[in-house]
Amino acid sequence: MDQITGSYGYWLPMDISAHGAAIDRLMAILHWFMLLLFVGWGIFYVYCLVKFRARAGHVASYAPVKAIFTKYIEVAVVVVEVFLLFGLSTPVWFKYKGEPEVNSQRMRLVAEQFAWDFHYPGKDGKFGRTDASLISSENPVGLDLEDPAAKDDIVSVNQMHILLNKPTVVEITAKDVIHSFNIPVLRVKQDAIPGQRVPVSFEANQTGHFELACAQLCGLGHFKMRADVLVDSPADYAKWESENAPAPAEAAAPAAGNKQPATPEPPKAPVKGQAEKTAP
């Protein structure tokens, strides 16, 4: 597969999300605020160490210094914190957690040791029925192939396709232990917890090839539980969708490939034609 898009250094990586700018701004303000406090304290601290060092003829003063300015500083810190909390953090968080737009691309994600199984509803926009008892190595999400809505569903392992400039909703769960869906460049993170399905929404505004990393310790293969995130233009997405939509003849067995979830090796994608392109 082609190179990962972007360069990665010692600070925040590029931001390709619609909501990320607000998070980055908050982080910048926070760190300037922290630096200001630290340097301010630091100057006072060093001044005291030099000025009030023990030496011949110098005695400590018993009476406490009357310092009104400490109260001002403390009040100022509280005011800034209130602003950070209600002015900056909470609005971003409410928007991030809020109801996604109706006209959004939806997909489901089932995390497992040590792979990410994406389930797309296909052209009809409806997810086929899934059932844990149907899960097998050929059918990682347990899709019920008898269900008419499942006929055009696409399941891809360790490869996530999202549409450029379109709100995306991923409903996240896990089938064994807790994982965490984490795409640094998209500024999203959501624990994948067995027994509950939590939606997370975002919008990517740049095409390219990015990485999804598991952020919650999930076992010996945790460190390489990665997936490729491909932000596609509408044309590329349509191409991928039509290439991978199960043909009617294939409907009985839509998923090919030999996935072995128990091994730490990243499983091969069951989507035909994608197997060679997944993670190294």
């Binding site: 998070i23 908050l26 982080m27 926070l30 406090l37 304290w41 500024r187 952020a215």
Partner: peptide, 27 residues
């Protein structure tokens, strides 16, 4: 201890605020 604890305490702020925690959580 004083400046070291100050660094430890201050860097708790971005983790305690939910919006910045989205990015920094578990890093």
């Amino acid at each position: 201890f004083l400046p070291m604890f100050a660094i430890g305490g201050l860097t708790g702020l971005p983790l305690g605020l939910t919006a910045s925690d989205i990015y920094l959580h578990d890093t």
